[in-house]
Each structure stands twice: as structure tokens, then as C-alpha cells.
Design a protein around this nucleic acid. Structure first.
Lengths: 198, 198
DNA sequence: ACCTGAACACCGTTCAAGT
DNA sequence: ACCTGAACACCGTTCAAGT
């Protein structure tokens, strides 16, 4: 399993192949099928492993639901960024309905601190998760493209990107906060003002 | 190209293979490489074709930026839903930096009607697009799993899903509106109240 | 300009058989 | 319980050669 993670990091998801993984383990490819029924199942296990490494942010007293949700989202982003193609791998495992849903649960737990109807918590956690996976996958794809120098010349840093006054982390926070601000409108107790996420 | 779309719809993305596509065209696989340099490039072209079919919502007089953005998001969703695995295909083409960005441009155009800083329009359009692709990909994956009866017994309709008081279209609108509500906080002219998206 | 034929270097998965 | 060896049915891509 650790070997699978190392292989992922070194070669990228596209080159994580049953045969290569077997080779790294000094074993025949068919041996893997005693431990996992499928390649997808194996990747789902790797996927869960990546998410397990998401740091659990320390619980502080005065925490708001929005603050905790942002912290959870940031922690999940860090976990995905820790391995090459982490977001793509997790996204596809999740899309296939494989692997646990630790990520979704953590977001739900955070939103659960707010006074929401249950379906708002569900839909909100889902929306945050979708954005999170999409955003980080995009981040990682760009990192890879840039490091390979694949994107040539003028296309490398487009005018719009250069004009962006903040980095990827801030862009991520911005997106999450859009969702949290939107959610703030749905708290049951009429809040005097929309709470700040940070 | 039409053949590629039909093949996609009939067999799903995983089975759209250069060899199968060539077979459907009564041609050798190598013939495809005269027209497209790559499989990815070919898929990016199919991807663009799918997005081109997104209905352009009629422009009405009293339209708000939020109303137009929601209409654009809905139209893009429809276009993705029109073909099997449409969202997954478009997402991966976009992630690879291939194909046009007609989708992103349409969302930017809608948001551009509001009085936002340029980087807000960019980040907002991006966030909506990420959510859109993730959500619809998830929708399509579930449709497929359900139709194949792959998801067994109790797992088929989880309690949470059953408790959801609205369908997929409404869940989609809800997510988009979260983002639009969040964006509303960033309009330059101090708006008296957050505008309704619908 | 457009396509064929043949090859290269791979895949995921199965399954009898070994220890 | 855990793995090997060999096979099956595929892949994407290249490239000389044909028309």
C-alpha cells in the first residue's frame, strides 16, 4: 500500500498499473488479485489512505460552523495535494461509489454545527466536496503541466491568471467561502448578519 | 465525429476506443491518426461538440446577472446530460487543458453583467464550472449504476437520499444558487438585499 | 490527401498449478 | 494462505507503403 502511494507520487496516476505495481513489489501481477478483486478497488483503498492523512484541525471553543467547514476543506485540500494526482484519484474513486466517504462526513460534521435542515447539510457538503475535488484536480494538473514545460510560451501564464491578485490557496478559500456565504442564508434562526467564514 | 458521439452514447466513455471507433467507421485504427494527433485531442473535439449543443437561453429584458448565470449553468447541465458520460468526458478534457473553454466563457459572460471586480468574475465562473462538472458527473454515474442494478439492495437508495425533498435538478439549482448568493456579497455597488437568483 | 498493414510495447484479468 | 506461469483478449501509437 505504501508502495502504491510511492508509485503514484513518482509516476503519476496514469502510470500506476497493476503490472508496474507488481514489479515494484517483486511479485507477479496476478498476485495482486488475491488481495484486491479489482484495480478500481485497489485504487479506492489508496484513495482512502490519502484522505486519512488529512490533518484534523484542533477544535477550538469559539468555532463557528463556517470556520470549521473552511478548516475541514483546507485540511482535505492539503491531503489531496500531498500526493501527485491525489484529487483525480479520489474524485474517480468517489464517482465510482468505491471507498469510504470520510471526506463528505467531515464536511457534514462541520456544517452540522450550524442550525440547518438536514437536506441543506447534505447538499452543502456535496457542493463543497464537488468544488474541492474539481479545484484541486485543476491545481494539480496545472502544476504538472508547468513542471513539464508542456504549456508553451504565451499560453503558460495567461493574462487572466496573471491578473489574479491571489494564489491558488486564496482562490480555493474564495470558492469555499462563496458556498459558505450561500449556506449562511439557510440557517434556521434568523441571523442578524451573514457570518464571516474566517 | 457524429459516429464518435453515437459510440459514446451506446458504449460509454470507457469503451470509446480508437480501435472501436475505427471499426464503426469501417477504417483502420491508424487512419484516425491522420485526422487527430491523439486520442485525447479527438476526445477534446467530441467534448467541444457536446458543449456546443448547450441551448442558448433567450435573453430577456429584466435579466439579472444571477438569473443569467443560473440559466447558463442549467443549459450546460442539459448539454452534458444529453450524452452518456458527458460530464466526465468534458471534465477530463478541460483538466488536460484541451478543447475550447466555451463553457467557462458563457458563465463569465453571465457574471460579467454584475458589477464585479474582474478576478471575482473569474473565480466565480471557475467555482460554478467545477461544481457543475462534479455534480453532473456524479448524477450520470448514479444513473448508470442504477440502470445496471449494480448498487445492491439497501445501498441502492440510502436513507439520506430518500430524505432529500427534491430531485437532481433542484439539488443542482441549490448548489449553483449557493455560489450565486455568495457572489452577491461581492457586488461593488452596495445592494440593499441579496438578489434572488430565480 | 487519405488510408492500409503490420508491427511495437504495452494493458487488466483469469486460472490452473504450485508451496 | 499466498503466489507463480502462462495465457486471453485487448489497448494506443508509429510508420512504411500504397492509391
Amino acid at each position: 500500500m505504501a508502495v502504491a502511494l510511492r508509485l503514484l507520487d513518482e509516476t503519476g496516476l496514469a502510470d500506476v498499473t497493476m503490472r508496474r505495481l507488481a514489479g515494484a513489489l517483486d511479485v507477479q501481477p496476478s498476485a495482486l488479485y488475491w488481495h484486491f478483486t479489482d484495480k478500481q478497488t485497489l485504487l479506492a483503498a489508496v484513495s482512502d489512505r490519502i484522505l486519512d492523512r488529512a490533518p484534523v484541525p484542533p477544535e477550538r471553543e469559539g468555532d463557528t460552523w463556517a470556520g470549521r467547514a473552511l478548516a475541514a476543506a483546507r485540511a482535505l485540500r492539503e491531503a489531496l495535494l500531498a500526493y501527485r494526482d491525489g484529487a483525480e484519484l479520489v474524485a474517480s474513486s468517489l464517482a465510482l461509489g468505491l471507498g469510504g466517504n470520510a471526506a463528505r462526513e467531515r464536511l457534514r460534521a462541520a456544517l452540522g454545527l450550524g442550525d440547518f435542515d438536514a437536506y441543506i447539510v447534505d447538499a452543502g457538503a456535496d457542493a463543497i466536496l464537488q468544488f474541492l475535488l474539481g479545484h484541486v484536480a485543476h491545481e494539480q494538473q496545472r502544476m504538472q503541466a508547468d513542471s513539464l514545460g508542456v504549456i508553451a510560451a504565451a499560453h503558460a501564464v495567461r493574462a487572466e491568471d496573471a491578473a489574479q491578485p491571489f494564489g491558488q490557496a486564496a482562490a480555493f478559500d474564495f470558492g469555499v467561502n462563496l458556498l459558505l456565504d450561500g449556506l449562511a442564508k439557510h440557517v434556521r434562526t434568523p441571523s442578524p448578519a451573514a457570518p464571516l467564514a474566517v
